[in-house]
Design a protein around this nucleic acid. Structure first.
Length: 425
DNA sequence: TCTGGGGTCCTAGGACCC
DNA sequence: TCTGGGGTCCTAGGACCC
């Protein structure tokens, strides 16, 4: 039996979620903005057709969007996360093995039926998902992940493919690969693109056929793997069991630039408490903390700074981490800078099952237990009543600097109270 | 005025050891 | 005048992803 690698993703996922939850914007131009209403991170197909580019700062396109009557939405990750869970559940039921790759994307292993045809399977899956959760998906089929990604690209791009494409079933792929520009290949970023262009490699077919020695010399195993995958030899395995997270990063841009150390410390305090709560949720401990901040990276006198500390004993205790991160925060603050962003990183995470206790010291163990219980209670209350219900003094704040989110359509599929009631007439 | 956030993997080079 | 060398481990930073 031959096997296929399949890549499945939601089309314009965030925009589709917004259209699903709000019928009044279906069939219309919609864009979704990143945190802080910074950039455009998703566009409905209608907005794309009107020429709205991806990844551009909102302020630059505000007027154009208004003129074109395009609907604006601040991002609503609670909604997207909930829709994602439903989507992945259906995929798990319909695939032999599934790797959840991101909020809107998965790789799967599928055994090919006797007639080798996966088209019917794909068509039924698409219909089921649209019927159950109202999100259109695309399906790309290949022998490897890189091939499946390319197939998915063709599934979307070529109208007559109507959302499903199987590249593995095509004997001579030259014409298809000639259509794929090198920078559209999964794993090729700006640096690689530049080098390929200099070498005269412009599309996937040329990349597949170039000297493998040359690509290996320049990009090491990463380049080598990419070429193998393109040729149809799988070397990026499917990962159905998610590996434990290795680090946690919590960072945000400020609504307005700040220049007071208290504000920076408030932000850092807030982020470390989010980070340590995440740690406890995943039953992990961190071995080191970094805090960082920077000014506007597009300005001439760009300033950035970071400071780190390795912990004596790995921990997930809010109080301890708060104290340390505030000390680090004081180190990175410099007056007269207009800071636009700050964040914390928790490094070298490990399971809390093997927590190292201080030997021969009953007093410390008692203290540890007390702290553990306190943290647990705070987590439970915050889960139930919202993230900031209970917190520690240094992070209770005037929210002057915190984030913009001016275009939120505040309906959540996870909160019945926000779902509108429809009265049949 | 306003330009996201959260990850992983890989590698070069420094620190350290014998 | 000559000023080891090879191995491992760790870290910072680069590149990429969605």
């Amino acid at each position: 039996m031959t096997q296929a690698i399949v890549q499945i993703d939601g089309n314009n996922f965030y925009a589709s979620c917004e259209q699903m939850i709000d019928p009044s914007i279906r069939g219309k131009g919609v864009v979704v903005l990143s945190n802080n209403d910074g950039c455009i991170i998703a566009r409905s197909s209608e907005a794309r057709k009107m020429g709205i580019p991806m990844g551009q700062p909102y302020f630059k396109l505000k007027e154009k969007l208004k003129k074109l009557n395009i609907n604006i939405r601040s991002s609503n990750y609670e909604l997207y996360g909930d829709i994602s869970n439903r989507l992945m559940q259906i995929l798990i039921e319909n695939c032999e093995e599934l790797e959840i790759y991101s909020i809107d994307e998965a790789f799967a292993r599928i055994d090919r039926p006797k007639d080798q045809e996966l088209y019917r399977w794909g068509k039924e899956l698409r219909e089921t998902i649209f019927q159950k959760i109202g999100i259109p998906i695309s399906i790309g089929i290949g022998k490897t992940k890189v091939q499946a990604k390319i197939a998915n690209y063709l599934a979307k791009k070529v109208e007559k493919n109507s959302g499903i494409f199987d590249i593995a079933n095509i004997e001579n792929k030259d014409d298809l690969l000639n259509q794929i520009k090198v920078d559209k290949i999964w794993g090729v970023g700006p640096m690689m693109t530049k080098w390929f262009k200099e070498k005269g490699i412009t599309n996937a077919r040329e990349l597949r056929d170039m000297s493998s020695d040359e690509i290996k010399r320049k990009f090491g195993v990463i380049g080598q793997r990419l070429q193998y995958e393109l040729k149809g030899t799988s070397c990026i395995p499917l990962k159905s069991k998610p590996s434990d997270r290795k680090e946690i990063c919590v960072s945000r841009s400020f609504a307005h630039p700040i220049d007071r150390s208290e504000e920076l410390l408030q932000a850092i305090g807030k982020y470390i408490l989010i980070g340590t709560a995440k740690l406890r949720k995943s039953h992990q401990l961190a071995s080191a903390i970094t805090v960082f901040t920077n000014t506007n990276k597009y300005s001439n006198n760009f300033y950035k700074s970071h400071a780190s500390k390795i912990l004596d004993i790995p921990s997930n205790d809010s109080i301890l981490m708060l104290r340390i991160s505030l000390e680090l925060g004081k180190k990175i603050f410099k007056p007269y800078n207009k800071l636009t962003k700050a964040g914390i990183i928790l490094h070298k995470l490990q399971s809390d099952q093997y927590q190292q206790k201080i030997l021969f010291n009953n007093q410390d163990i008692k203290e540890d237990l007390k702290k553990e219980n306190l943290n647990k209670i705070i987590d439970i209350i915050n889960r139930k009543y919202g993230r900031n219900t209970l917190s520690w003094a240094p992070s209770i704040i005037d929210n002057n600097w915190s984030q913009r989110s001016n275009n939120l359509y505040n309906i959540k599929t996870t909160d019945i109270a926000t779902i509108p009631t429809v009265i049949a007439g």
